[in-house]
Simulated assay, not measured.
Amino acid sequence: MPNGASAQSQSISASPPRNRPDSELARDVRRALSRAPNLHSTGIHVQARHGVVTLTGWVPQRQQVQRAGSVARSVRGVRRVNNHLNVRTRGASGH
């Protein structure tokens, strides 16, 4: 029956990922960002709290904001990403 199979697959996919320590999660996200191709991650700061990762800082190109968010979401244990990255070009002056 499709309903039985559906209910079974839902219960499997609905099981929450195992909680990981915030420091371990932040470290793994930093590592994933640094290894991601086409992503300049030196200006990105990572904080983790209860599976919620917050990205702050800057990247040099607009498309890298979304790329960083996707990379962070791909790390095991990340439940949500708050992406607060800004775009800052090399020659831009700060306020």
Rank of each mutant, 00 (worst) to 15 (best):
A7W: 02
R35P: 00
R62F: 10
S34L: 14
Q8K: 07
S93H: 14
R62H: 12
H84N: 12
L25E: 05
R79F: 03
S15F: 15
N38P: 05
R88F: 04
S6E: 13
R18G: 00
S93A: 15
M1R: 08
A14F: 04
A68E: 04
R27S: 13
N38V: 03
S11H: 14
R88P: 06
A92Y: 08
Q61I: 06
P60K: 07
T42R: 15
V81Y: 04
A68P: 02
N86W: 12
L85I: 00
V52D: 09
Q8D: 06
A26H: 05
Q66K: 14
A14T: 01
V71E: 01
V46F: 07
D22Q: 03
G91C: 04
A48Q: 13
S11K: 15
H50F: 09
P21F: 07
N82K: 14
R67E: 11
N83Y: 00
R73Y: 12
A48H: 00
A7T: 07
A5E: 07
S15Q: 15
T89C: 10
N86Q: 12
R73P: 01
N82G: 11
E24V: 10
H95W: 13
Q10S: 14
H40Q: 07
Q47W: 06
Q64P: 00
N3P: 09
H50M: 12
V52G: 13
D22I: 00
V78Q: 08
L39S: 00
R18P: 06
N86H: 11
A14M: 10
R30S: 06
R18E: 12
N19R: 11
T42Q: 15
N86P: 03
R67Y: 05
S70K: 12
V78M: 08
M1A: 14
R62P: 03
P2F: 09
G69V: 00
R18I: 11
S70C: 01
A36P: 02
H84Y: 05
Q64K: 01
G4A: 15
N82V: 13
A32D: 04
A26Q: 04
H84M: 10
G77E: 02
N86R: 12
A36K: 04
V65D: 03
V75T: 06
G43C: 04
R49W: 11
V29K: 01
A26Y: 12
R20G: 02
A32Q: 13
V78N: 09
N86M: 15
R90P: 02
A14H: 08
A36D: 11
I12V: 12
T56V: 02
V87S: 01
A26G: 06
G51E: 06
A7Y: 11
N83T: 08
V53Y: 01
G4I: 10
A5L: 13
P16E: 08
T54S: 13
W58I: 04
V81H: 02
G51P: 06
H50I: 04
T89G: 05
V87L: 05
V65L: 09
V53Q: 02
G43K: 05
T56F: 01
S6I: 12
L39A: 03
G57N: 08
Q61H: 13
T42F: 05
T56D: 08
P16A: 07
T42W: 02
M1Q: 10
E24I: 10
D28W: 11
V46P: 02
V81E: 07
V81F: 06
